[in-house]
């Protein structure tokens, strides 16, 4: 009986082993075709293999730099939206709102995280991208119809609850005595929050931001629909950029032979993504855990 139960938890291990094995194995095959240095340092990404093998550029160029910068650019925009909105929402909910408001607003914000990401992607295409294009035209800027800004903004909206929930938990965990100590000295509430409560809650808040970042980096549907396919190496948010996840999807959808460098590249990108998000998660969990112990 207990052995049967144990197999259940063994599956969890098997999944991880499966992920690591499949990613590592295919990446290994990829690196036999494309050298690691090209993958990590070449600033050009053009996986379009030619039809005839004797054509120029027959093998494609697999430099992940434009994908990484694109991913980071969009994630940065997302965090620039989610961090202030999420943090200020959490502050208001934890420190100002009465319990009734809190009971209504908190789940409402969490709805944002429950909406499927494909819906956000459609929202970006339907509303945000045209809005930005028209707004850009009005301001005399040319905004690409698939801009990093549109994808980043919408991804930011999606990530708000990841920031606000963890920040709220962290703020609430700060002992009341610290807040009262500051208020008793004649602090205004905002002074107590800014100078005492937030510094005390900072580890928890940082953990939340890291989780949000990891979420943004691994997000797929929003960028597939709202960001582009063009691997531009740019930091201009008005231009189209592509991301690691977008390229994984493009390389693997449609019918392809499985052994080409193109399809294998998707697994190398997947491994990169897995490692980066894993590191972010481990750090975030470590920080949050340490922080909880501090006030327990």
């Amino acid at each position: 009986m207990v052995a049967a139960l144990f197999t259940g938890s063994l599956v969890a291990i098997l999944v991880t082993v499966g992920i690591v094995l499949s990613l590592v194995f295919e990446t290994f095959r990829f690196l036999q075709i494309v050298p690691l240095t090209e993958f990590l340092f070449n600033p050009q990404w053009s996986p379009q293999t030619a039809i005839r093998t004797d054509q120029v550029g027959a093998s494609g160029v697999f430099g992940a730099i434009p994908l990484i910068t694109g991913t980071l650019l969009i994630s940065a925009i997302a965090l620039a939206v989610a961090a202030p909105i999420g943090l200020f929402s959490a502050i208001y909910l934890a420190e100002y709102a009465n319990s009734k408001t809190r009971a209504v607003v908190k789940p409402t914000l969490e709805l944002l995280a429950g909406i499927p990401t494909v819906v956000y992607g459609f929202f970006a295409v339907l509303i945000i991208a045209p809005l930005l294009r028209d707004g850009g035209a009005w301001a005399g800027l040319s905004v690409s119809s698939e801009s990093a800004l549109a994808a980043g903004l919408v991804m930011g909206i999606m990530t708000i609850p990841f920031v606000s929930s963890t920040a709220d938990d962290a703020l609430i965990a700060v002992p009341l005595s610290l807040k009262e100590g500051a208020l008793a000295l004649g602090s205004t509430r905002s002074e107590a929050i800014r100078q005492i409560i937030i510094p005390a809650a900072l580890p928890g808040i940082t953990g939340g931001l890291l989780l949000a970042a990891s979420r943004a980096i691994g997000e797929t549907m929003i960028v597939v629909m709202a960001a582009g396919l063009a691997a531009n190496l740019t930091l201009n948010p008005l231009e189209a950029v592509t991301t690691v996840t977008v390229q994984i999807v493009t390389l693997l959808t449609g019918d392809q032979e499985f052994d080409s460098a193109k399809t294998l590249a998707a697994f190398a990108l997947g491994l990169l993504l897995f490692i980066v998000t894993l590191i972010l998660n481990v750090i975030a969990q470590h920080i949050v855990k340490k922080y909880r112990e501090q006030y327990d």
């Binding site: 005595s177 500051a182 000295l185 005492i196 510094p199």
Partner: peptide, 20 residues
């Protein structure tokens, strides 16, 4: 209230030094 609390200080049951 801010001014009032500047005139009337308070010390609490459990020492609550700020994390500073």
């Amino acid at each position: 209230v801010v001014e009032l609390r500047a005139r009337i200080g308070m010390v609490f049951q459990k020492p609550n030094p700020f994390p500073k």
